[in-house]
Design a protein around this nucleic acid. Structure first.
Lengths: 112, 112
DNA sequence: TTCATATATTATAATATTCTAATTATTCAA
DNA sequence: TTGAATAATTAGAATATTATAATATATGAA
């Protein structure tokens, strides 16, 4: 990892933008829905229990952060992740959390 | 990755907690300061250009999210990450952003 | 004990985020 | 073209987050 590049202010801002974009329960859920590929706004709306307008707002946040792209197909608009590496990012978080769960579980066993 | 586990509500909440905890410019900066290991509150304060009380608040957020631990050493309190995998998480984000930068750079070259 | 240094806590004002409701825009089919 | 379905935009109220200022707590040295 090139530290010089990471000190680039614009990149730091993008790092923050992505973190802020995913720091919301509904948007995390929406991102998970995209692991299987493109999905239309109406399918997202029925999956996440939010008003359509609110889903659209969340999608805009994710798109503005550079995480999603969209294309129209007839009446529908399909969204997908711009770069699959966003899932590596999410998976790295899950790996951390799962390790912590295992550590806690082992501690509990030790107490038995 | 075990999807069943990830559907665990508590884990989803922890995922959100971590995302929210890192979704702040100063806290991202504080986390970076910990890549070299333990660091005391006073050194963090002088590094990040914030009031001491505010630094303490940010550290509390990171600690409550399970990201940091602390120990007292005399007058000083030293903080460090609980699990180094938090850096894998951050590095995965940087990898995504750097790839996007490269893609953009190649596109620009193509236009020349 | 008393003082100086380091850290934490609390209240509050300023700002940002989120959801709802209403409206607007876009597409397709009748 | 009109209407129905899908999606986006806007305004707002409610809530959450942030920084500041003031205060409290904890430690070590004198």
């Amino acid at each position: 990892m090139d530290k010089k590049v990471l000190e680039n202010l614009e990149l730091l801002q993008k790092r923050l933008n992505v973190c802020k974009a995913v720091a919301n329960a509904k948007r995390l859920q929406i991102l998970d829905l995209m692991r299987d590929g493109e999905i239309c706004v109406c399918d997202i709306t029925s999956a996440v229990d939010l008003e359509q307008s609110n889903v659209s707002q969340h999608l805009t946040v994710l798109k503005n952060a550079g995480i999603l792209t969209s294309r129209r197909n007839g009446q529908h608009v399909l969204y997908k992740v711009r770069n699959e590496k966003i899932f590596d990012f999410m998976d790295a978080l899950d790996a951390l959390l799962l390790e912590e769960l295992e550590t806690a579980s082992k501690l509990l066993k030790g107490l038995q």
